[in-house]
Structure formats: structure tokens, C-alpha cells
Design a binder for these strands. Structure first.
Lengths: 221, 221
DNA sequence: TGGAATAATAAGGTCAACCATAACATTTGG
DNA sequence: CCAAATGTTATGGTTGACCTTATTATTCCA
């Protein structure tokens, strides 16, 4: 490899940035939260990433990926999501566990293996959670949807993607049948940031707002 | 996992011990050589492994795996060789590169993924290099063969396995067509630890003794 | 049997990625 | 507009897995 080899930690930070924000600035606190480290540690790491030219950090304004950082991040995400496809479609690993296992594998995957895997899988466009898989060059079409937490009462929507990463969260959503492709109706939104009442299939489901933020949906017209 | 998680380094040491010796004691120098670290580092690491009850080290006599250590090692080897099968048979990765890529993946593979992979592959018995794949419990039938370096002039042998791990060595052997299943005849053994002259297919090949030690063969009666 | 080769131990150092605690800066909402 | 929340910086600590240099111990064979 010509790339000096980026650490697993580096890859996790860059990936988290894309997963948290797309291209907008991410506050260090959010990053720290997602990566389960203290804000102080995240700050340190962001400084290191800045020194490597992978991110730029405006104090109190958040962190953004540089072009280089974005390229690396998309590459990591590509690897991750390809492995998700393999684990789910071929190894029959449970949906809620796929992300976690793919995450370990992604850091151990050379470019050559990534491309061979993509080829083996038939160059899939989305992962089992519904997210698009970046192409070799790191570009991908963002999903055309809104957060379920922003849907209006009465809306009938189709789930495009589930953006959660924690296995327990995924497991919970899986149990409630909140999965890509599923149709559902927003029955009610409780006040004071309360849960959403949803009709999923034949069942009524109460879903906390913070969980609803993980779900990307498309309004059926 | 109930296992406290063993580091990648730990896994590499344990695996190297099996690859170097089967079950006999390994001198620290050999270990250090194989793992590309200094003997001092290997010594330190062996002490740590000893503290964890994975190896036992008799000064000046070498290191042996404990039962626990052997179990872990066989498990690592299982993962490694299953990935070798996948990379070779399904991803069509070049033979000489398969070991190296599988080695990265092995450390990132949870037991559940290992078993799902074994199942997907149809529980293969040998890896592309010809080595047996330990079963779930870590047991496997050792190859019934001798080192090519110990074969006698005039012998016609079939290659059972190639035990090299370095990609450049594997590449060299691949170019000479020294691959599992291949038949060949020992034409001559040069004196003073000199190379073997082999007839491989229609070609004559000179192979250094140290390379011949990587090749396990079975005499055709 | 003595010396070369090999092995072990000691002491001190580096590096990445974390941690905690504490002080200080900025932003933002009530 | 000010205080709480959030973010930043400083300082010092830990851990794993390496490193070097130097000294001492053991083995083994010529």
C-alpha cells in the first residue's frame, strides 16, 4: 500500500463523522459520545487528525472532514457496507449483528480485497440497513428522505434506511419490525419530545424520538 | 464473548508457535525471527503470555503452548484458513496473497462469524496452501508427510502443503509451480546444504534448502 | 573443556490512544 | 445579559507492544 496505513482509531473517527453529519461540522461532544470516549480524548484525537490533514477543527464550531478525510471515510464506509452485505446475504448473520461484525472486518480489509468482495457481491448499491454503498471513488447518492422524527402525524412512510449502529438499538428496532422497506403510518406524536405512535404492519409501536432520528423515511407522496 | 479478548499480537504469537513447531518447544529466537521482532521483545511478550497461562517458558529450553494456549492458537488458525478458502475460492485472490490478507481478517473475526463462514464454505478440510483446517474444537489431523528438504534423491513425491507465510516466498513458489497437489521428482541434492534440483512438470527447478523446508510432501510409495 | 553462539535479564525509551481532574473560554437560551 | 451548558486546554497518568544497549547465563560442539 502506498497509503501510510491509518490506524483503526483514525478510521473510526472519520467514519463516525460521515455517519453523524454527512458533510456538516460535528461537535466534538457528539463525536466523543458516538465513539464512547471522553470529550478530552476526542479533542486530542481530532488534533492528531488535523495534523494529518484529515479534518479541520474550528474551536467551538465543530469538526469537518477535509477532502482527503472524506475520501478515506467513504472508503471505510464502502468496506464496512460491503461486509454487511456479505455477512447478511451469504453468511446469514442476524440483521442486528451485521453492523458490529462488519465494523471489525472493515479495518482489516485491503483495497484489493474490497474490490474483489464488491465484485463477488455484484456491486450492491445498498447495505442491509438501507444505506448507499460508496463506489470505488468514494462517491454515492445520498438518500432522498427525511428523519422519521421529522415526519408529520398522519404521514404514511416507507423506511429507506436505519442509521443506528449500536447492536442493542438495532436489535430493538428489528423486534419492532422497523426495517428498510417497511411501510408505516405516524399515528401520533406525544408532546414534550415524547414518543411517536406508529402503525407498523398490524401492530402499534411507540418509538422514542431519539430512536426515530435513526430512521430515514420517504413520505408516500 | 466470554473470552477477555486477546490482542492481535497475542494471537500472532500463539499462531506462530503452532506454525513453527506443532507441539514441540520453540526457541525464542525462532519466534522473534518469524514475527519480525527482536528477541528481547519476543522474550517480554512470552513472559506476558506466560502470565496469562497461554504458554510455558523454560529458559534455554524454549516455549511450549499450554492446553489453553493451544486451543486459542488452533482457533486462530481455523479462522485464518477459512478466510484463505474464501479469498481464494470465492474472491479469486491470487494464491500467493491469500495468506497475507487472511491474516489481517482473522483477528477481526468473532466466533459466530467464523462458524457462519465455515458453514458457507461447506466446512472445508484444507486451505489453499494444503494445510488442514482445525475443527470447531481445535482438533485436526496433522499431515502425513515429510519435509521436501528431507526427501531423497530419486524420490517422486506429491506436494501436500506449502507452509510458507511470507507473500514473496509464496509468490516465488507459485512461479515455480510448487503448489499443493503437484507431483515432482528430486533429481539431485547439491552438497553443503546446497539447493535441490527438482523436476516439476516438464521443468527443472533449483530450490534452496530453506525453501524446501516449507514444502510438505508425500512420497509416491 | 573452553569459547562461540545463543538466550535471558536489566534498564530505560518511544508511541498511540486512551483516562481523570481541573481551569478556562465560548455559546446560547431564558 | 448572565448563567448554565458545552467546548477547550493543560497536566499528568496508564497500558501494550515495541525498541536499544548492555550484562550475564547457558548450551553445545570442535
Amino acid at each position: 500500500m502506498s497509503v501510510p496505513h491509518l490506524s483503526e482509531s483514525t478510521e473510526m473517527y472519520l467514519k463516525a463523522m460521515v455517519e453523524l453529519s454527512g458533510t456538516e461540522a460535528v461537535m466534538i461532544g457528539r463525536l466523543a459520545e458516538r465513539l464512547n470516549v471522553t470529550p478530552v480524548s476526542a479533542n486530542e484525537m481530532v488534533r492528531r487528525l488535523g495534523e494529518q490533514g484529515l479534518v479541520s477543527h474550528k474551536p467551538y464550531k465543530g469538526v469537518t472532514l477535509t477532502e482527503k478525510g472524506n475520501e478515506v471515510a467513504c472508503n471505510v464506509i464502502r468496506r464496512q457496507r460491503l461486509w454487511e452485505c456479505f455477512l447478511y446475504d451469504h453468511l446469514k448473520i442476524e440483521w442486528s449483528q451485521v453492523y458490529e461484525f462488519a465494523c471489525s472486518l472493515e479495518h482489516a480489509t485491503a483495497p484489493q480485497v474490497t474490490e474483489a468482495l464488491a465484485n463477488f457481491l455484484g456491486n450492491p448499491q445498498t447495505c442491509p440497513r438501507g444505506n448507499p454503498i460508496p463506489d470505488k471513488n468514494g462517491s454515492f447518492i445520498p438518500l432522498d428522505g427525511i428523519l422519521l422524527s421529522e415526519a408529520k402525524v398522519g404521514d404514511t412512510v416507507t423506511i429507506l434506511a436505519v442509521n443506528a449502529t449500536a447492536t442493542d438499538v438495532l436489535k430493538y428496532l428489528q423486534e419492532k419490525n422497523i426495517l428498510p422497506g417497511q411501510k408505516m403510518t405516524v399515528l401520533e406524536a406525544a408532546p414534550l419530545q415524547g414518543p411517536l405512535m406508529l402503525k407498523v404492519g398490524s401492530k402499534e409501536v411507540a418509538l422514542g424520538l431519539s430512536l426515530a432520528e435513526f430512521v430515514i423515511v420517504k413520505s408516500n407522496r
